[in-house]
Computed example of a mutant assay.
Amino acid sequence: MKKVFLLALIMLSAFSVNAQTKNQIKFTAKIANRNSDTLVIRGANNFKQVIPINKKGFFAATFEAPKGFYQFGDGREVSSLYLKPNSEVNLTMDAKQFDETIVYKGKGVDESNFLAQYALKTEKFQNEAFTKEEAEFNTMLEAMKKSDLESIQNEKLDPEFQTALKNSMEQFNQYAFQAYQSNVKTNKLKGKPSPEFDYENYKGGKTKLSDLRGKYVYIDLWATWCGPCRAEIPFLQKIEEKYHGKNIEFVSISIDKAKDNDKWKKFVADKNLGGIQLFADKDWESEFVMSYGVTGIPRFILIDPNGNIVNPDADRPSSAELQTQLDALLK
């Protein structure tokens, strides 16, 4: 499970909090070990605020934004925050320990600090509970539900924030068991023969998984519209360069809809994407995608030279753990 699972639920259920009235927001951030020279805050109705770093090493901007839930990202990771009328938000963090170090100070920041801590709590739950047997998982989930309800009853928190987040918590709890079952099913795929694919190749013709037999295959399931997918591309390009000439193929499979085939081709050309670029036949409902129980992207899969699954939910290119694993396999 990835933290994006929680963030997506929060954003989906909470966008309705946003009102038409815009309020002035003062935002500053001091980020150690930053991944980028810009931060991007995104919200409902295509809201986007780009905040560049200044000469003093701070990200700073004053802008107008409706009250509600937002995400900020540094091009590599994202986190949620909540903006209220006339907020003065001072963020500090270390990008190497992104979630663990987020602290908001200033005016109107209680909700954002709550979100930062809740994200950590939920990620810990996912990391621990999803490794347990079903009975223990259910016990942990019930405890999580009780704890969630208690934590949101805080007089310091905005009432609209409380209502929206409570709805999001309920969605999380309702979906958690389904996600747990999917995770169990996915883990059972390890060591088994991978499902096959036979997809359109950007360079012409079609490519089957069986065509790559004899090599390790690292597969990236992505789409042109997926921000986190695009954020992984520079890291994937570095991985491809490092292991060029080794016994491994890098395959990117787009699950864009058929109507966006030309958009996919243009993206591949404009970004000069390497590896083997393929286009799935039925986007999310492609047989290969469904066989792996994919519910979110980017999703990475590692297959061995015999066509067996090494990891059905492999580490991302931006993860140091991936290079450690590939170094061991390709030595």
Rank of each mutant, 00 (worst) to 15 (best):
D158S: 03
L120N: 04
A223M: 02
G227V: 13
F197R: 08
V184E: 07
G204F: 09
K215C: 07
Q181G: 00
L221S: 11
M140Q: 06
A223D: 03
A164Y: 04
T163I: 14
K146S: 09
N113F: 06
I219V: 05
Q237L: 15
L165V: 05
K188R: 15
F114R: 00
F235Q: 09
R230I: 13
K156L: 13
D220W: 08
L115M: 10
C226E: 13
F235V: 04
S151T: 08
Q162W: 08
F177L: 14
I152P: 03
T207C: 06
E241T: 14
L165T: 02
G191E: 08
S151Y: 05
T163Q: 11
G227L: 15
C229P: 04
K188Y: 15
T122R: 05
L165Y: 12
P195V: 11
P195T: 12
T131Y: 12
Y216M: 02
A164K: 03
Y218W: 03
T163M: 10
W225T: 04
K185L: 06
I233C: 09
A135K: 13
Q237E: 13
R213S: 05
G214S: 00
K166C: 04
N173E: 02
A179L: 00
A223L: 01
E160S: 07
M169T: 01
A135F: 12
K156M: 13
K121H: 15
Q162H: 04
K121V: 04
E136K: 12
G204T: 03
R213N: 05
E170A: 14
R213K: 11
Y218P: 01
K185N: 06
Y175F: 14
G191C: 06
K215T: 12
I219T: 00
